[in-house]
C-alpha cells in the first residue's frame, strides 16, 4: 500500500528563489489497484514519485510505502519498490542478464534465488534470445524489457512508474501498459504518472489530477465524470486545472 501524507517538496533556485514543486499532496493507493497521477509537464508528478521511491527526500510530510516510512526507513522502502521511468536507463556495457543480476544482488537476493528469478522473468518476458547481449546493442523494446526485469527481479509489492511510455513507439508502449496491468493482476500496489489521457482511462482504478504541485481532484473515473459533468477525461482535466491556469496567468 502507498499512503502519502501531506508530501511537500521545495527547491531553492538562484534566479527564481524558492520553488514549491509539491505542496501538501495526500492520497492512498491500495494493493491490486492502479493509481494514475495525471498532470501537465512540471505539475509535480515526477517529484512526487521520486519522493515515494525515496530518491528525493520530502521537505515536509511523509508517506508510508509497503508499510515503511519513506523518511525514516528509506532503504527498506526501496527494497520493496520497483521504480521505472524513461529516465531510468540501463548500463550500456553490461549484458541484459548482468544488469538484472546486479540489481537482484543489491536487493539482497541469494545466488540460487537470483538464478531462479532471472530464469522465470526472462522466460516470461521472452528475453532469452538477448540474455548475453550488451544493453547498448539492444533495441528500444528490448531495453524496456530489461528495465521491467530489473524492477521485477526482487518481486516488490509496490510498483512506481514515472511516465513509462514517454517517447516510446506504439508496440513498446503497449508492452509497458500490459506489464502495468499484469502487476495489478498479481496484487501489487501500482502508481504511475502520465499526461496521456487514454492510458489513464484504460488502466486506472483511481485518478489524481495534480497541478502546480497540488492534488486538485481525486477519485475513480466514474466519480470524476459525475462530479464534473463530463464524459471525456481531457475535458475533466481542463475543468479541474483551468481556473488555476487562469489564476496563475492573471
Amino acid at each position: 500500500m502507498i499512503e502519502a501524507r501531506g508530501l511537500c517538496k521545495r527547491f531553492q533556485d538562484k534566479k527564481r528563489g524558492e520553488i514549491r514543486a509539491v505542496e501538501g499532496v495526500s492520497f492512498r493507493c491500495l494493493p491490486g489497484q492502479i493509481y494514475g497521477l495525471l498532470g501537465a509537464n512540471g505539475a509535480g508528478k515526477t517529484t512526487t514519485l521520486r519522493m515515494l521511491a525515496t530518491i528525493l527526500e520530502p521537505t515536509d510530510g511523509t508517506a508510508i510505502v509497503a508499510g515503511y516510512d519513506i523518511v525514516e526507513q528509506s532503504e527498506k522502502v526501496r527494497a520493496n519498490v520497483g521504480f521505472l521511468s524513461t529516465a531510468t536507463a540501463l548500463y550500456p556495457r553490461l549484458t541484459a542478464q548482468e544488469m538484472v543480476e546486479y540489481f537482484g544482488r543489491l536487493n539482497g537476493l541469494d545466488e540460487a534465488t537470483l538464478k531462479r528469478r532471472i530464469d522465470e522473468i526472462f522466460g516470461r518476458l521472452d528475453m532469452d534470445g538477448f540474455r548475453d547481449r550488451r544493453c547498448d546493442k539492444l533495441s528500444t523494446g528490448m531495453k524496456q524489457k530489461v528495465s521491467i526485469a530489473r524492477t521485477l527481479v526482487h518481486d516488490p509489492p509496490v510498483m512506481i512508474f514515472d511516465e513509462p511510455t514517454l517517447g516510446l513507439d506504439v508496440m513498446t508502449a503497449r508492452t509497458i501498459v500490459e506489464f502495468i496491468r499484469e502487476c495489478r493482476n498479481r496484487g501489487k500496489t501500482v502508481i504511475f504518472s502520465t499526461h496521456v489521457m487514454s492510458e489513464v482511462e484504460k488502466l486506472c482504478d483511481n485518478i489524481g489530477i495534480i497541478h502546480d504541485g497540488k492534488l486538485l481532484a481525486e477519485g475513480p473515473l466514474r466519480e470524476l465524470r459525475a462530479k464534473y459533468g463530463e464524459q471525456d477525461l481531457e475535458e475533466i482535466f481542463v475543468k479541474v486545472v483551468g481556473p488555476h491556469h487562469v489564476a496563475v496567468e492573471a
Binding site: 526501496r78 519498490v81 529516465a87 531510468t88 536507463a89 540489481f103 536487493n107 530489473r150
Partner: peptide, 14 residues
C-alpha cells in the same frame, strides 16, 4: 548523462 544515476538511486543500495 546516460540516465543510469536515477536507476541506481532507486535501488536499496545506501
Amino acid at each position: 548523462e546516460r540516465g543510469t544515476m536515477e536507476t541506481i538511486l532507486s535501488s536499496p543500495l545506501a
